[in-house]
């Protein structure tokens, strides 16, 4: 079963630890954080559970159709939006419980003073192919 672990710049429940913005951390703290993420992905590849991981820039915009012959309308960058996605990891695991366990471990990534940041991560199941046998 595949799950998406979503990391947000903003949004989700209120943070339990005030870890500030990553650009306020020391370079060593940033390095340790990045290394933790890399090690986590490498470990999941080892266990045969890694599918994909990507980070997103906070830049970008909302875009929509605005009628025949008209250019699309854009809205953004997102200074005002409440929810901003920072990146994701896709995992392929045996169960929801395993997905929650892994997201819990990922949320322990170190922040200021090397302390776990207890970041809220969003875990969402993929819609899969329908099974062959249904009745």
């Amino acid at each position: 079963m595949k799950y998406l672990i979503l990391k947000h710049y903003r949004g989700g429940p209120a943070p339990v630890v005030d870890y500030g913005s990553i650009d306020q951390w020391t370079p060593e703290e940033v390095d340790a954080h990045v290394q933790f993420m890399r090690d986590f992905a490498a470990r999941l590849e080892e266990t045969g559970e890694f599918v994909d991981g990507q980070a997103l820039s906070p830049q970008g915009a909302f875009v929509r159709y605005d009628g025949e012959g008209r250019p699309p309308v854009t809205d953004g960058p997102f200074a005002e939006t409440k929810d901003l996605i920072a990146g994701w990891m896709v995992i392929d695991v045996e169960s929801w419980d395993r997905a929650v366990q892994l997201a819990g471990e990922l949320s322990a990534a170190p922040g200021p003073r090397g302390e776990p940041i207890h970041e809220w991560l969003e875990v969402r199941p993929f819609l899969a192919e329908p099974p062959t046998v249904t009745e």
Binding site: K2, L44, E45, E46, T47, G48, E49, F50, V51, D52, D92
Partner: peptide
């Protein structure tokens, strides 16, 4: 067939 990277599948098998 299972839509995962080849490296992941290789690890799953050797594990």
């Amino acid at each position: 067939a299972y839509l995962v990277p080849e490296a992941t599948m290789a690890q799953r098998i050797s594990r």
